[in-house]
Amino acid sequence: MSEISPAEWTAILLSLRVAIVATLVATPFGIALAWLLARRDFWGKSVLDALVHLPLVLPPVVTGYLLLLTFGRRGLVGGFLADTLGIVFAFRWTGAALACGLMSFPLLVRPIRLSIEAIDSRLEQAAETLGAAPWKVFFTVTLPLALPGVLAGMVLGFAKAIGEFGATITFVSNIPGETQTISSAIYSLIQTPDGDAAAGRLVIVSIVLALGALIAAEWFARRATQRLHGN
């Protein structure tokens, strides 16, 4: 196999940009939701929990189509955002980031939720007796102790985002340089008569990225355990 071509680099870099933006934007929402699910009881909690997990079980093409209906130029939210803020998702890399963020959201939320659940809530009580208002308790006790879980969630979410295919191609199509990620580039290449070598290179890149993410997530999880035991 020869070197990675400029066109392939474009797809790789676009994938990275899409996955990084998706992960960074999704993380604050993920933390907030994980905290709600781990620490609060409220009406409709199981529905919210199911909604968060929905992208995991729904056919990606359905998620992509729903995104197109909602965030497309003539969609309810998409039209509003385009008219008022000038933000367009349809057939743009931003749309790919939105699709990837949504598809990877369950994987992002889960480790964060587990690590918040693993924190002894009596530590949060102790912080309160020392004069910390609830939001300070969150930022000085809950979040630092959950940090390895947050990082693990980000790594997993990132890995999922970089490999997302179905929802992305349905929502923003497969435009080289704009919305053609590694996955959609591989998809195009294996349909071209002599695209096997290029597809093979991108497959290897995918495997390396995914493996790296899993190893990193594992490492963060181990750090979390150590942190909770105060060593």
């Binding site: 002894d120 009596r122 007796t129 004069g131 910390a132 208002a133 609830p134 102790l145 909770l228 105060g230």
Partner: peptide, 16 residues
């Protein structure tokens, strides 16, 4: 958090 009390628990509860 506004009561200005100190509380020592049986299990210390130091921040790890």
């Amino acid at each position: 958090y506004r009561r200005r009390i100190g509380y020592v628990f049986q299990d210390a509860r130091l921040f790890p």
